[in-house]
Simulated scan of single mutants.
Amino acid sequence: MCDAKGSFLDVYIGQPGSVHDALVLRRSPMYSQALYPPAGYFLLGDGGYPCLQRPVAIMTPYRQPVASQVEGRYNRHHARARNVIERTFGILKTRWRSIFLRALEIRPVFAPKVVGACCVLHNICVAAHDILEEEQEQDEGEMAEVPDGRDGPGNAEGDERGLSGREVRGHLAAQLSAPQDLPACLGEHDYI
């Protein structure tokens, strides 16, 4: 998880690479202890994560094909905002390509510590304004699909107001389509 500047806020390196994203999330301390985000804020996740309100608020894109222009508009804004983490991973891999783009010659038990150390060093570089651009090999805007037709495993029942993650996402999508309610910082509008 990273912020808008590309600094890592939380890194969970406790699962092998073949584990589904949603399972990694459920096993992470951030999820099990509901550590983040604060009330009223949401994390953005790709289609490999469930759309949840609790215990961790995560907004995901609508499945393709979208049912309306409102859902399509939401997905475009969501993809643009979520590209921050994709760029951050690209910069991390570029900065330490000698570590991430070849086999590590260490015992496997130390690999998570190396990845964690690279994330900490990355944050130090970001704080020191040591800017590094990612290489162009990244596929921007790509969103994974959940194959079974749901928004992901473990959908939340709802919060105190009775809103599930899907209902909150619906409200956010509707707000993006209501030009009079949009903050100026959201930029262009593509409504009809």
Results as ranks from 00 to 15, higher is better:
83 N>Y: 02
17 G>M: 09
22 A>I: 01
184 A>T: 12
14 G>A: 13
50 P>S: 07
122 H>S: 01
44 L>C: 04
112 P>W: 02
116 G>A: 11
2 C>W: 04
152 G>M: 00
157 E>W: 06
174 A>I: 01
128 A>R: 14
78 H>C: 02
122 H>A: 03
117 A>H: 11
16 P>T: 12
6 G>E: 04
74 Y>N: 00
39 A>I: 06
118 C>P: 05
114 V>F: 05
158 G>Q: 13
182 L>Q: 03
154 G>W: 05
120 V>D: 08
35 L>W: 03
166 R>T: 11
84 V>F: 05
19 V>H: 09
72 G>S: 15
99 I>K: 00
80 R>I: 03
124 I>R: 12
123 N>G: 04
56 V>N: 00
139 D>M: 11
120 V>Q: 08
109 V>K: 13
28 S>G: 03
10 D>Q: 05
114 V>R: 00
187 G>N: 09
125 C>P: 05
11 V>T: 02
30 M>T: 13
126 V>L: 01
83 N>Q: 00
26 R>I: 13
143 M>N: 13
120 V>M: 08
173 A>Y: 06
80 R>Y: 01
182 L>R: 15
69 Q>Y: 12
182 L>T: 05
100 F>G: 10
177 S>Y: 04
105 E>H: 15
85 I>G: 00
46 D>S: 02
176 L>S: 08
112 P>Q: 12
43 L>I: 09
159 D>E: 13
120 V>A: 14
34 A>M: 03
21 D>P: 07
48 G>F: 01
79 A>T: 12
21 D>Q: 09
71 E>C: 01
114 V>I: 14
90 G>N: 03
147 P>G: 08
78 H>R: 10
45 G>Q: 06
38 P>Y: 11
189 H>T: 15
35 L>M: 14
1 M>D: 05
129 H>R: 14
38 P>Q: 05
192 I>S: 11
105 E>N: 15
27 R>D: 15
7 S>D: 04
19 V>P: 00
67 A>I: 02
105 E>P: 10
57 A>M: 14
68 S>T: 14
191 Y>C: 11
100 F>L: 05
150 R>T: 05
80 R>S: 09
9 L>D: 10
12 Y>A: 04
79 A>Y: 02
174 A>S: 10
150 R>D: 09
1 M>T: 10
133 E>N: 12
169 R>F: 00
75 N>G: 07
93 K>Q: 10
124 I>H: 12
59 M>P: 01
48 G>V: 04
87 R>P: 03
90 G>K: 00
151 D>V: 12
25 L>N: 01
136 Q>P: 05
172 L>S: 04
134 E>A: 14
158 G>D: 07
114 V>Y: 06
16 P>Y: 10
7 S>C: 15
90 G>V: 03
61 P>E: 05
175 Q>V: 10
6 G>D: 06
60 T>R: 11
120 V>C: 08
35 L>R: 05
65 P>W: 10
61 P>T: 07
17 G>S: 07
33 Q>L: 11
177 S>L: 01
95 R>N: 07
15 Q>S: 08
155 N>G: 14
15 Q>H: 14
